[in-house]
Design a binder for these strands. Sequence first.
DNA 1: ATTTATAGTGCAAACGTTTGCAATTTTCGG
DNA 2: CCGAAAATTGCAAACGTTTGCACTATAAAT
Lengths: 351, 351
Amino acid sequence: MSKRTEKTIVDIAEELNLSVSTVSRALNDHPNISAKTKEKVKKMARKMGYRPNTMAAGLRNNKSKTIGLVVPRISMFFPATISTVIQNKLQEHGYNLLICQSNDSYEQEIALADTLYSARVDALAVSTTLYTTDFSHFDVFIENNIPLVFFDRVPKDYNVKVIKGDDYLGGLTVTKHLIERGCKDIVHISGPLTCNLYIERVAGYKSALQQHKIPFKKSRIFYHELTRENALQTCEKIFAQQPYPDGIFAANDTTAITILEYCRKIKLRVPEDIKIAGYSNDPRTEIITPSITSVDQYPALMGEKVAAALLELLQQSKPVQQKYNEEIIPIKLIARASTEGPVVKVRGKKK
Amino acid sequence: MSKRTEKTIVDIAEELNLSVSTVSRALNDHPNISAKTKEKVKKMARKMGYRPNTMAAGLRNNKSKTIGLVVPRISMFFPATISTVIQNKLQEHGYNLLICQSNDSYEQEIALADTLYSARVDALAVSTTLYTTDFSHFDVFIENNIPLVFFDRVPKDYNVKVIKGDDYLGGLTVTKHLIERGCKDIVHISGPLTCNLYIERVAGYKSALQQHKIPFKKSRIFYHELTRENALQTCEKIFAQQPYPDGIFAANDTTAITILEYCRKIKLRVPEDIKIAGYSNDPRTEIITPSITSVDQYPALMGEKVAAALLELLQQSKPVQQKYNEEIIPIKLIARASTEGPVVKVRGKKK
DNA sequence: ATTTATAGTGCAAACGTTTGCAATTTTCGG
DNA sequence: CCGAAAATTGCAAACGTTTGCACTATAAAT
């Protein structure tokens, strides 16, 4: 009764008195098929409103023409930009992107790895949650030679392709910048140390202090998820007692912005009384007054590298045993009003 | 040679001396299977590292457990927020999301509709390009009873479910607000009229003028894609000659921000000399100085409605002929510093 | 013990493609 | 016009599931 409207290559074959194999090959531009037949078949396919069934083809070929992407959150500036670029690039090459968000939940990440494997994605790109330190849920991809690329938030000691920013250099550069602009007591607000980003930025921060012979104080560093709420709480702590710090290096921009607003509220002048720097070069940092110094991580470039890495792995005919292989995207300090001030000649190693 | 590591239900069946059908049913918790067998099968599946093949199941069932999403750009604030919500909601219900961006290209949109149909998505949600006025590339979804939902940028006279903001009311409200704050010569910067959003916002703008007996001047309205570059060009035109307008209603926030910066540059004071309002309540509008009046469109709510609509359509067992059916998400004026000023008693219809 | 209902399991076809190989047709040199 | 090579086309199996129907045990009723 219900008229089946879905046309298949079988229908085309019948209509033209050809075999299904010929039709299939004609549609795929197989060299063995004569130009005449190809024309005829394609025309009929168009006429009948034929749409290939990707699932059927995928089942047969064990290829889905689909790539998985797992990020903490697609609406945050940095991953959003990266995802955009990846998606456009892969779309160009005929791949679809299954974009999933872990919401920074380790359990969700595991579940997603599972679903994406079941969907038989041809490759997978991942930026992990803040708390992922065990990566075994991705083992199945490696075992089955499915291209796997990590970016931004990445594993250590896991045999995969990794594309990351230079977070150590970033932390170092920002902190040195603050020191050169006269800061002597710099607070660092970091994310949790389960994530490579923060480990490295903290390391950079410490190195900068050391290079300039500024003692590192444990009480001047805070670790928590970098949300607005947490930032406010930390502000309360920082400004509960004197002396106030004269510089704050926040490991993301939301935090930097929150601090700036807090300082405004308690009548601290930025940058005169206190200097503030963020990380990631979120568009808001440029627009706020005073504009906030931050670090450009070239998200578009990172997205392109990820896409390129995926495509390269995909076209390797022979499955090749992956080794840990990291590619580092440069960073660039974007100095803005929030850290302005006379450049100070600092003690310590010459720049 | 190459050890096949992919386990299938056939392997499980052999291992347990059961038939494939029993294994399949056991894994799917079919009522006819005894608890004992289910336990046994699931345990073995786990042990053997079995992963269901979604494509095979999809082929058999004609269901992919995948939903398509087409938006102009995933990195823009408004669609990004909506996508996030949709993705999370659908993920909860076991659906994957194929997110695609048209980049506001009509051709790309057509191509995407095609691919997503071929991927046999179980449903499709779309926010069209600025230039889509012919929607026939989506016909195939309707013909095959595949749930189809449009949101934000939506068609008219096309028999589908539509979820949209109240753009007429938005345009009206913003313009009235400007008038009440004393503006008498208001420029409107609109997107192209091929898109419902702008048609309606313009209509709202005109209504407000009319209600307050302010003559509408064609020269005070500009139409173009709302990018930063275009906004700058328009600024050049607007401020090329006196008299300057005393109010500007930009149909998006990027434009409003650009104008604000331009005014700053030419030493016009906002809001004293000129008032500015945007649209969409982009996070930047809150942060810039002066903060910019804008319109909250409740993107999270819209995302939820879209997801809910998709899920509802998906669980209708009987394919039901869709009719045009629109759901309107409210808007809310967020008045900020950029339009501050004494509230003026205006002529015309009482508020 | 015999019949009847019930619960559990198995058989085999089907979903729409692709592809190795076999079969057929065409082309063409001699 | 013959035969062989080259160019086309067709056959049938395979990909991994699900499911209608048939079948076999087991339990219950007589």
